[in-house]
Design a protein around this nucleic acid. Structure first.
Lengths: 239, 239
DNA sequence: CGGTTGATTGATGGTTGTCAATAAGCGTGG
DNA sequence: CCACGCTTATTGACAACCATCAATCAACCG
């Protein structure tokens, strides 16, 4: 099953028909993007909604002096905002972190999908609202959490989000990014990310080796990161 | 004219009919909230969409140890997310900063407003997308801007946002919050906000006195804050 | 005119950034 | 299989920015 369907089922009770519509969308106009390449850059005009099928991407903004902030990670099953075409230009860039496969959904196709389908419309509204909730939590992270809390919180968040789309196994998940990229997401330096990871390793809470995160003690890690999964809104049991 | 209509006209060409619908919504079920009182608290279940008519509010999250992060400021004309009722519980709180008047729009009322009205639906989608863009910019602010840049950027953002709803006059605007609240929004301490304001005052870029911001040199202040208004998407001229 | 809240300033310390050097990992090609 | 070169990770030394604590001052208010 494609990761978007998997994710939406967490919220809505989808019919076979809904699923086949989603499956159709997920197989349209595939595109592969190499790591470190932009999927779309700030200032460009988006022509379709991108759906991540595999690999990791990120939204980011960069200053002229080189400082960069990763605003969010885009994981399999994530959509780049519905209706982006209502805004003329991109105010940020989206770049691939690992090799990425994505489906490009056209505005017309999206309109057809949603027209008269309340369940799917609501499911995608839910997706949008959860994305906003994620932004809010990230603001809290970079605004008020310490470096240790930031790293722990992010690792927990990714664990839960990847879990929904079936990408968690053996107490961990593939982490196809660099420490520098994690630093850009957390608003700290890569050197400090490194030191912080060492601290979490020493405390036997988690490891990150060979591109894979392993969580040794999830409850303790969540405590350290002041992590409360409520903002992911995953507990609605197909309501 | 109510501030929501004013704001949406920035994006959409509204008919008289649209405007009267909005006016009707803006006059329904008014509620007054005192400063420092929650409009809705984390964990509660929202029953309607709140529209700020006057005064300032904010979304925020607070840790048990007292640390608080203000996620966004809610100004006149701002809506608390459409369709919040799709998410069961609030994952954050909304509190009044100054005396606030708001209209409480019920889900049914909203549905009636939007049903079959593509222009209004799109206008409110635009509102949602701009809110998300605001979140992203705030992540950049707390993640990668220095204290000086943060303060300058926020003052510029508020200037532009308040300008849209007609609350800017004589090179400035009313600022009904404390330095501590600004600190909680910017992820720094109130003491440091104070020192930073002094620096901006000394540089003759702005003043904040008697609850009012005055901008002495907007271009220079925007430069200091690395402020680029593109994320506010205000340049669509009623497209 | 007290009393409370918020603003302002100084002193000090801590978390994190920067710089720089070394080690480790990884893909390519000899 | 190893050598090479590149990227990334790791570690130490030092500096800077910002937090914290605490005291004073100003503003507001009944």
């Amino acid at each position: 099953m494609n990761p978007l369907t998997r994710k939406l089922e967490r919220f809505a009770c989808l019919s076979d028909d809904d699923k086949s519509i989603l499956q159709h969308a997920a197989s349209s106009r595939l595109r592969n993007v190499e790591p470190r390449c932009d999927i779309i850059a700030e200032g460009e005009t988006p022509r379709h909604v991108n759906l991540i099928l595999s690999g990791w991407a990120c939204r980011y903004k960069q200053f002229e002096d080189g400082r960069r902030q990763i605003v969010s990670f885009l994981l399999p099953g994530d959509l780049c905002d519905l209706n982006v075409f209502l805004l003329r230009d991109m105010d940020h860039s989206i770049g691939a972190l690992s090799p990425v496969t994505l489906a490009q959904i056209s505005p017309e196709q999206l309109r057809q999908m949603l027209d008269g389908n309340l369940r799917l419309t609501q499911a995608l509204w839910w997706e949008t609202l959860v994305t906003a909730a994620n932004y809010r939590e990230r603001i809290v992270t970079v605004g008020r959490r310490t470096a240790l809390e930031r790293v722990a919180h992010l690792v927990c968040e990714l664990f839960h989000r990847l879990s929904v789309v079936g990408l968690v196994g053996d107490r961990g998940y593939e982490m196809p990014i660099t420490q520098t990229e994690m630093a850009d997401a957390l608003g700290i330096s890569s050197v400090h990310v490194n030191r912080t990871l060492k601290e979490l390793r020493t405390a036997e809470l988690m490891t990150w080796k060979g591109g894979r995160i392993t969580i040794l003690n999830l409850p303790a890690l969540e405590d350290v990161g002041l992590f409360n999964p409520n903002y992911l809104h995953l507990d609605q049991g197909g309501r």
